[in-house]
Amino acid sequence: MKLHFSTTHEDHRIALLAALAISIYIIESAFPSPLPGIKPGLANVITLFTFLCYGWKIALQVSLLRVIISSLLLGTFLSPTFLLSLSGSLLSLGILMLVHSLFYPHYLRQYQPSAIGYAILASVSHISGQFIVAWYFFIPHPELFKLLPILMTFAVILGIVSGIITQHLINKLCSTHNK
């Protein structure tokens, strides 16, 4: 029996972006982190780039593919790590969509944040999503909240860095992005 799939140009684009994000995620997870819970999150550069360049539908698919496939490859599928990763990605994408739609009316469009603003929001909401899930499901202990300000501080710093990288990517690769 032979199966035939017809793929569109969009599918190829999703596959390419997801593959990039997965590779970055796996390379990144091989490096030890100086502090547990803090990592650069460079894979989210791809998600953010996809969101700003190709829209939320493609970004959601890329992000879900990245979470599921990289967890399968790293052997953490359906484990706490996977749930943390999933919750962070979904919340950060949700916040991006919210802010993007907030600035969607034509008279507000000029105030739209650039990639850096979006990146800060994305990384802060990513860590918040992870934190909520970690606190609610895994470690419901009030002392965990002492970690939150530290995690948030690093989220802002690393968010600015990934925002700058995303802006470079958009300048180089994205011809259709809405300013």
Partner: peptide
């Protein structure tokens, strides 16, 4: 360079910093 900073970015940074 060729990186664009907008006023909204600073507002976001300011609000997130005050949250922290």
């Amino acid at each position: 360079g060729n990186i664009l900073f907008k006023t909204t970015d600073f507002l976001i940074l300011l609000s997130v910093s005050s949250l922290i």
